[in-house]
Design a protein around this nucleic acid. Structure first.
Lengths: 119, 119
DNA sequence: GACCTAGTACGAAGGGCATCGTACAAGGGT
DNA sequence: ACCCTTGTACGATGCCCTTCGTACTAGGTC
């Protein structure tokens, strides 16, 4: 075994709530691929493995985007067997930036569908 | 005279409300300098010339940031004599992404001041 | 043990972005 | 007319970021 903590899965570094920076979060959400990941995660309402996300990029690029989201404090990742489960850090984000996540998700949804009202 | 529209000030290109893209707005707000500009503008509550903003960069860099904000649809700029007046596009942003601006401004204000509650 | 699935690490390529300095344009004041 | 203030344009520089391919690790299944 290579780990020094037997019985425990490999650990991943996450920023503490107090370390989450607004600009980093905005930057994380400003990329179309990452915004899509966050949106999928929010709609699922539960933890999802990386393989469950429909992304238009390769696996290594996907890994990169997940790491950006994690290091910005947007998502929480934990190993579970061969998979890695991803969860939104809703409690932390809502505590730090009340309404931000909901507003961004709603805004994105309204832009996804053209839905012009003047038919 | 070099302009073909005598009596009118030089015109600046602004995106129409329908052309404003969420990701572009998020990207515009994700830069510390630009976020500071938007914050100053929001707190002033009125149009401000570029020279009224306390920025830690040179004039040319400042011009660049104002342009990014304008092209993203975050601010409106108009020439007024030798100055250029900047205004937040509140109505457009609130219509497209309700709450986004307020949430971001509030979030930034809460991070500016450490203001830990456990004094 | 052999194999498969899920994800990582690393390096490279390509593009974009923030920043600066300098030279310039536009408008107003004296 | 002259100059000052305000902002622009352009080129250069250096960094960061997205993307990929390939080789690899970790954990589970047969």
């Amino acid at each position: 075994m290579t780990s020094d903590a037997p019985g425990r899965a490999r650990a991943l570094a996450h920023p503490d709530r107090a370390e989450i920076r607004l600009e980093q979060v905005l930057h994380a959400l400003a990329d179309p691929v990452r915004l899509s990941l966050v949106c999928t995660l929010a709609e699922a309402g539960e933890e999802l493995p990386c393989s469950a996300f429909p992304v238009p990029v390769t696996k290594s690029t996907s890994t990169h985007h997940f790491r950006v989201l994690r290091e910005a404090g947007v998502i929480h990742q934990v190993y579970r067997g061969t998979a890695k489960l991803n969860a939104l850090r809703r409690a932390d984000l809502d505590a730090l930036f009340p309404g931000l996540l909901d507003v961004v998700l709603a805004a994105r949804r309204s832009q996804e569908l053209p839905a012009r009202s003047g038919a």
